Simulated assay, not measured.
Amino acid sequence: MAAAAEIAGCFAFWAWLRLERSPLWLIPGMASLALYAFLLTRVDSAAAGRAYATYGGVYIAASVLWLWLVEHKAPDRWDLIGAGVCLAGAAIILLGPRHA
């Protein structure tokens, strides 16, 4: 959910600046970015940096889904390979053994 909120918020700015949409797009965009920040704090992690690093991989994979589902551009094999590598990295960060 955090990734969707962040991507939607950033896309609102993209639409305004790159697609020449109304500046009114910024209102839901900013609300979406605030929702993203809130949702990211709900992650059960003792360290914010580790939560953010893990989220990075999820964000990249969600961005490739956004490309496909919202922008109607099929991801190519490099998009998919890159997203897979990032998810693998996120899994290593999230699931790696930790010493107390």
Rank of each mutant, 00 (worst) to 15 (best):
F38K: 09
F13R: 12
R50P: 06
I60D: 03
F38E: 09
L40A: 09
A4T: 14
E6A: 14
L69P: 03
P97A: 11
W16P: 06
D44L: 05
G49F: 11
R77E: 15
L80K: 04
S22Q: 01
W66A: 15
A48P: 08
C10P: 05
L35G: 05
A15V: 09
L17R: 12
L80R: 03
A3S: 03
F13L: 12
L26A: 10
L65S: 14
Y36C: 12
A100N: 14
A53I: 12
Y36R: 00
A48W: 12
S32F: 10
K73R: 15
A4E: 07
G84I: 07
T41I: 02
A5K: 02
Y36G: 04
H72M: 11
A8H: 06
A34K: 11
A62K: 01
H99Y: 08
G9N: 00
A5M: 05
W25S: 10
W68N: 15
A88M: 07
L69Q: 12
Y52K: 11
L65P: 03
S22W: 01
L69D: 09
L65K: 07
P75H: 03
L33C: 07
W25D: 15
R77N: 10
A15N: 09
S63W: 05
L65W: 08
A2T: 00
A8E: 11
E71Q: 13
G9W: 01
G56Y: 00
G29K: 00
A46W: 04
G29L: 04
L24R: 06
Y55S: 04
L65A: 13
L87M: 07
V70S: 06
D76T: 11
A15F: 07
A47T: 09
A53T: 14
P97L: 09
W78M: 13
H72A: 13
A83D: 02
W78G: 08
P28T: 05
A83R: 00
G84Q: 00
F13K: 11
Y36F: 14
I93T: 06
G57C: 05
C10A: 15
L35S: 15
I81C: 08
A15P: 02
A48V: 14
A47C: 09
A47E: 15
V43A: 03
G9Q: 01
I27A: 10
